[in-house]
Write a protein that binds this DNA or RNA. Structure first.
Lengths: 185, 185
DNA sequence: AGCTTAACATACTAAGTAGTATATTGTCAA
DNA sequence: TTGACAATATACTACTTAGTATGTTAAGCT
């Protein structure tokens, strides 16, 4: 067998191929750069240069720069929002307390680098909405998902008595998201 | 002699020169474009093309594109904020009512084109803060001015009894601005 | 009038930019 | 083992970009 026939490892990097991993690497680098300089402030060359890959790989994964942007929304921002603002709420019997605690945790003492994960959504919304309709659609969908999931927890709070029955959960959820987004600035 | 051999006036526009007016024209066009596509999404060529002037004029007024950005903050955004969110408050004996009314007016029924004047500040903050320190300074100064001026009116409200004595005017002013910025998205 | 200078205009450049064409190489099925 | 194709690399192109160099003209001063 001799699977790899002693292929000189030297110092040059070994070139293992892995579709998903490469895609993830691109997305990771891109998210950092974009959340740092904005979508239009970052070039494809910038991104690939900070990657272990090249332009060929990039365009193998994303047909266009805009498609990278879409992927950033769907595969990075959206999961980050859910993971940071929604999922943790399940651990609190009282969703209101959960929201407050989570807000303190994510916007409070943390260093600004961590803080930057609540408002990238807003950043992208503001920057890209006029530029591209598809972008707008996906960003608003993400925002809507956030509000909807928040509402789920608020309704749960109604059942368990932590939230008054007469509050409009939709309005409140919207207000909370709005305020969080406002605070991030 | 024979300077230009019948230099035809034709329909071509007469070239009156006016420093301030030219500067204003550039700023006006630039503000529309920038608030539409973002600062990095707009090129100097884009701007001058929508102007009756040319690149030479542009660089006569602004040594660099960033300087145009600074001027946008100082000479367009800042006056707009003051004019729309602060000055009108003087007409209300009760500043709280003034704030509510003004918010309704500016964020309520209006068409989105008018609405776009409250959040450009936020847009620019989000987009430019990581890009350029000077930009950040000026934008935050504008934001601080907004908060400070709001606080003035809140303090006035304390004296006239419309605002409870025990509220922290600074905190409240900050919260109001924050919320307004959040709503604009 | 004529000179000077500020207020522009025109033409250009060097450095980026997204995207393409094509070559190379790992990996896996047969 | 060997094709075959997917995954990646390299080199290039057409175009845009901020900025510059330099030419031209309106307007005030004398």
């Amino acid at each position: 067998m001799m699977k790899k026939t002693a292929v000189k490892r030297t110092s040059s990097r070994r070139k293992v191929r892995n579709l998903e991993q490469s895609r993830k690497e691109i997305l990771d680098v891109a998210s950092v750069e974009v959340f740092h300089h904005g979508f239009q402030g970052v070039s494809v060359d910038d991104i690939v240069m900070k990657t272990s890959l090249t332009k060929g790989a990039f365009y193998h994964h994303f047909p266009t720069k805009l498609d990278l942007g879409y992927a950033l929304v769907d595969d990075v921002v959206k999961p980050a929002i859910i993971g940071r603002w929604i999922t943790p709420l399940s651990q609190y019997p009282n969703p209101l307390k959960g929201i407050v605690e989570q807000t303190k945790l994510l916007l409070g003492g943390m260093d600004p680098s961590q803080l930057k994960l609540g408002c990238p959504l807003n950043n992208l919304v503001q920057e890209m909405t006029p530029v591209d309709k598809e972008f707008k659609k996906r960003l608003q969908a993400t925002l809507a998902l956030w509000v909807a999931e928040l509402e789920v927890h608020l309704k749960r709070g109604k059942k368990t008595g932590f939230v008054r029955k007469d509050v409009n959960t939709r309005q409140v959820a919207l207000f909370i998201v709005m305020t969080i987004e406002g605070m991030a600035g």
